[in-house]
Design a binder for these strands. Structure first.
Lengths: 155, 155
DNA sequence: CTTGTAGTTGAAGTCAACTTGAGGTCAAGG
DNA sequence: CCTTGACCTCAAGTTGACTTCAACTACAAG
């Protein structure tokens, strides 16, 4: 598979866990880079795997691709990124997760005080109006983790 | 505004916090019901407010509209729902929230063990591969709470 | 040299939950 | 009678993160 030390799409797909279509998409939006063979096929450097690893981790933590891209853009230009560089990028994630956890906990605690009464009062119920679960702007957005639903929704 | 005790769209919109367009949408998908005036305008019964309150709470907890609809479908047919009915519907939510919180905590703890090293190793890093943060099927889905991003993303 | 697998492109589709817009109706006040 | 504002419908648009498709090309094995 590997004449040089460059990787093909399917190599990268398998190793990174991203579908080939996702890799092409990421290239289109400038998130990752690939050189081309004379026949116009993509060849990836090994370093793209680490970049993709960062992207996956960022997504896991809840970042959008835009945010991940912005973070990646702060990597140094001339030299290859060091471990310290990567660590710097993910340093803020703990706080973000703490906040997310806190919001969910407050929601749950509000639920505890509501569940017996079945109130769901429009004005007073904490599950109705969790002050700190930010209302999301724009269409198609809900308050809370749609994706986490899959934790329960089998199949 | 109120000649009878029926509510107009804007009444319901204001009291429920849902936009009129959302109310119309909910009616189209059979989530709420409204009668019509001779001039074809919607008139809502007061009970729709409670129904909408349930829907909002369900969305806050992370349910889809489909799931909310399924839950609402289990309400008794002949009689108006009691407080016990509503309480029953929201009883499972605590477990759901607990699970969501747990998944995030494990992710955070994995991050703690990773952040110093900047590894993000494809095989071993917990932030890379949180075993219990379910991978979501289908397009457009990530691992974790996109909406929670708004907690940070000002503007 | 043939064959099959893997790769290419650009455009369009998917999903959820709505919103927006165009074009029209209705009821009340002045 | 006219205007204003609230309401109606139906179709299409929005968002993010991709996937799917059709039609075509490249490369390695035999």
């Amino acid at each position: 598979m590997r004449t040089t030390d460059l990787l093909t799409v399917s190599d990268v797909a398998e190793r990174s866990g991203f579908a080939p279509s996702a890799l092409r998409f990421y290239e289109r939006i400038g998130l990752v880079h690939a050189t081309r063979t004379t026949g116009n096929q993509r060849r990836y450097e090994r370093s793209v795997l680490r970049r993709l690893a960062f992207i996956r981790a960022a997504r896991n933590v809840g970042l959008s691709l835009d945010e991940a891209a912005a973070a990646l853009a702060t990597l140094p230009d001339g030299r290859p990124p060091t471990r310290a560089d990567w660590a710097r990028l993910s340093r803020g994630w703990r706080r973000r997760l703490d906040d997310q956890i806190g919001a969910l906990q407050r929601l749950r605690d509000g639920l505890d005080s509501c569940i017996g009464c079945g109130c769901l009062s429009l004005k007073t119920c904490a599950v109705q109006n969790p002050a700190d679960v930010a209302q999301v702007r724009g269409p198609g957005a809900a308050y809370l983790p749609a994706p986490l639903r899959a934790v329960h929704a089998r199949r």
